[in-house]
Simulated assay, not measured.
Amino acid sequence: MTGVTVTMSHWLNTEKPSVRVCVREMPCVGEKWTRCTTYKRNAKQYRRVPKLKPPVRLLISLSYFFSEGIINFCVEQTNLYALQKNVDLRMSMDEARVFIGGILMSGYAKYPNKRLYWSEKSDSPRLLANSMRLNRFEKILNNFHLNDNTQAQGTDRLYKIRPLITHLNEAFLKHGGMDENLSIDESMIPYYGRHYAKQYIRGKPIRFGFKNWALNSSDGYMLQFDVYMGKNAESVPQGYGVGGDKVVDLLTKANVPHHKGFKLFIDNYFTSVKLLRNLASMGICTSGTIRDGRIEKCPLRKIAAMKKEQRGSSDFRFTDDGWQDSRCKMER
């Protein structure tokens, strides 16, 4: 029988006790919360798929994710958009490779103005300047497109870059291999311009930008991602909240097998009792912190009482399906 364990711990490096929730397979103990001192983990082991060794040449590495197919698609859509604007562009495959490489290089060698990459100064990188003229680069930049605007339906806010997102997600799964230990978290893509999807998150290292949902392996490799476009623009609600719905969505898109011993780690933004029960029914062992308002009648010791205990002390309960309250409110 699969159950849910809630643990309150007072860690050595924290002033405030934290609450953790994990789903594990354990004997049925009835419908009531039970105090326990030990429990067994009996999850099936999953043999990790060997990952590809990193190639020696950077060009080979990039070709895994920017294949000939997606580059050719970019060329077709860019030339189509230029034609719709009555611009004679005729971008070639080689020019597309140079353009994409220049965009990637600008993320490492940063300058306040793109024209500085064509500067004659000795400390400026000459790689892009030696490969393409400035006027040609700017002309491609003004017309670069990834999808046909005339076919947009207005329902997908990421329509203009959706083909690239779909291609990258497929490439990440194809070349990365599935890991037994997975995690889901949010990350920020820095952006300081004007855009309706730009987010502001106070207290983060990157406060302004696009919020990105990411499913990652234990070594940091991203297996699947999606960009947050606002609460109303998300997929059909499944009843787990914005964060919980995205957990189910990412696991589904990544085709994570059920009942194969996979382990998922999430933080308190995503964790809810209802979500853990659903993942438990899939055979996915889940561990994550949970906010105080989400423990749903679990008789844990109060935080004030835990503060008086010695550091390293803990208190936890487990149940098979004893929760009846389905309200979810997140708070660290």
Rank of each mutant, 00 (worst) to 15 (best):
residue 250 L to V: 11
residue 12 L to C: 14
residue 63 S to I: 02
residue 299 P to Q: 05
residue 72 N to H: 11
residue 92 S to H: 15
residue 94 D to M: 14
residue 115 R to G: 06
residue 267 D to G: 01
residue 230 G to S: 07
residue 282 M to K: 10
residue 6 V to F: 10
residue 233 A to R: 06
residue 227 V to D: 00
residue 73 F to H: 15
residue 300 L to W: 06
residue 299 P to R: 10
residue 152 A to V: 04
residue 320 D to K: 06
residue 58 L to P: 03
residue 321 D to V: 02
residue 47 R to T: 13
residue 203 G to S: 08
residue 170 E to D: 12
residue 319 T to L: 04
residue 72 N to S: 15
residue 261 G to F: 07
residue 18 S to K: 10
residue 133 R to P: 08
residue 126 R to Q: 14
residue 163 P to V: 05
residue 29 V to S: 03
residue 141 L to V: 01
residue 152 A to R: 07
residue 217 S to H: 05
residue 173 L to G: 00
residue 155 T to E: 14
residue 54 P to R: 15
residue 169 N to K: 04
residue 313 S to V: 02
residue 91 M to R: 03
residue 214 A to T: 09
residue 290 I to Q: 01
residue 322 G to E: 06
residue 313 S to M: 06
residue 287 S to N: 08
residue 201 I to F: 15
residue 5 T to R: 15
residue 245 D to F: 09
residue 297 K to V: 13
residue 50 P to A: 10
residue 266 I to A: 00
residue 267 D to H: 08
residue 181 N to Y: 15
residue 21 V to H: 02
residue 195 H to R: 09
residue 303 I to Q: 07
residue 10 H to I: 01
residue 51 K to L: 13
residue 221 Y to E: 00
residue 163 P to Y: 02
residue 102 G to K: 00
residue 47 R to H: 12
residue 170 E to I: 05
residue 175 H to G: 02
residue 233 A to W: 08
residue 100 I to G: 02
residue 144 F to L: 03
residue 309 E to Q: 13
residue 180 E to C: 09
residue 138 E to I: 08
residue 302 K to T: 11
residue 302 K to E: 10
residue 101 G to S: 11
residue 104 L to Q: 13
residue 303 I to K: 08
residue 60 I to P: 00
residue 272 S to K: 03
residue 279 L to A: 03
residue 150 T to Q: 14
residue 21 V to P: 02
residue 285 C to M: 11
residue 126 R to S: 11
residue 198 K to E: 06
residue 162 R to L: 00
residue 82 A to Q: 03
residue 9 S to Q: 12
residue 288 G to T: 02
residue 300 L to R: 03
residue 133 R to G: 14
residue 292 D to A: 15
residue 141 L to H: 06
residue 329 K to M: 14
residue 219 D to G: 05
